[in-house]
Design a protein around this nucleic acid. Sequence first.
RNA 1: GCGGGUGUAGCUCAGUUGGUUAGAGCGCCAGUUUGUGGUACUGGAUGUCGUCGGUUCGAUUCCGAUCACUCGCCCCA
Length: 414
Amino acid sequence: MSVSSLQPVRGTHDLMPDDSRRHRWVEDTAFAAARRYGFGEIVTPIFEFTEVFSRTLGETSDVVTKEMYTFADRSGDSITLRPEGTAGVARAFISGGMAQSLPLKLFYRGPMFRHERPQKGRLRQFHQVGVELLGVETPQADIEVIALAWRLLSDLGLADKVQLEINTLGDAESRAAYRQTLTAYLSGHVDKLSEDSRNRLERNPLRVLDSKDEGDRRIVENAPAMGDSLTSAAREFFEQVTAGLTALEIPFVVNPRLVRGLDYYCHTAFEFTTTQLGAQGTVLAGGRYDELIATMGGPRTPGIGWAAGVERLSMLVGEPPPPARPIAVIPMGDASAAMVVAERLRRAGLAVELGYSGNMKKRMARANKVNARFAVILGEDEAARGAVTLRDLDGGTQDEVPLASLEDHLGRLS
RNA sequence: GCGGGUGUAGCUCAGUUGGUUAGAGCGCCAGUUUGUGGUACUGGAUGUCGUCGGUUCGAUUCCGAUCACUCGCCCCA
């Protein structure tokens, strides 16, 4: 094993207890919110057959063309570490025959993998929490799913750090019409477009709309708007979504240039963004994907969902709730007696810190460092009386209590 | 995948205009207090100066490559 192999693989990252506590808090807050909206957790494999992703995300998307962790397993099958959650959930929906139990509300969490160049808030193995609501064609689903996202961000204390942007990509008919109109317009300005946008024009013209290039933006300003190409049904759908958000007092701005990267989206597309994470402004994003499951070979089943980056959220949230403060058990002489007492307290449901070595002074210092609330001191004098010394480490006072009723005492105090 | 910046103790960072023993603060360890922590005081340990190679009598310092991190682009959570 070489020295370099002792480093974590580029773009991956260990979470030590303080970090993982924050991480877990974000996930648990998300799941708790999702449960209030009626979502249950689904756990799918972190790898799938490559086609699950390549067929669904769009052959031209960056995720598929250059970011997937794909390898052949020992039987020669092409396997891909999941780059996102929706395709796997859709696959599970089909292979599990879950069309019988619609509507279906699923929450998921876990690692995702994309071979990109790492940056702040952008890793090769990162974590997402996400939800999918399957089987509901009406805007009520869109509203509920976005409301859940807003609830989660509010619960994390991020309501004033994020902004909701929303747009409609229309139905298939609207999109085809708009794509044609837009392509025609942009083709007329090809010589003035940036190189990136000339590429986008061929692969996915909608993405020219959110180009950051100065020159592109001037051209885009005068481009025909998606809104003008919408069918009346698509327009009405979007109006109902925005009306619902207003009714629920969820602040949003309509951004007609908002486009999603993955091909399966239609109708509602939305993003919660922040200005506090540098170039990685998107913290939670999602949209509607009515044709995805049919495209994969399942029964046509409308769906809408979102995913949020746990690392990105973790960088924005404040301190997670502190862990329960332990009781420190400190033996003066007989360490095995201390183990018995510690075990008793642990069985009673208390968090107990029992040191491994050192004199009393060191053990007290250790108790202090782990933020213990009380110290149980097992001294020889007290032991002779069947008692222990219970010290309040915040107040600095201590009392002798009978060993037999130690749990009761501690239970009353905490 | 493309372009810029950075890389010195566990952490945050100074420093060496190339020269013998590389520093601070925090943290860590020990002591002042051999049955009592948090404060204070005293003392101590720590580094192949990211890695490999080049120039040089001599490189942590200059040059190159490489790796990692970081900022931006692409893209995205």
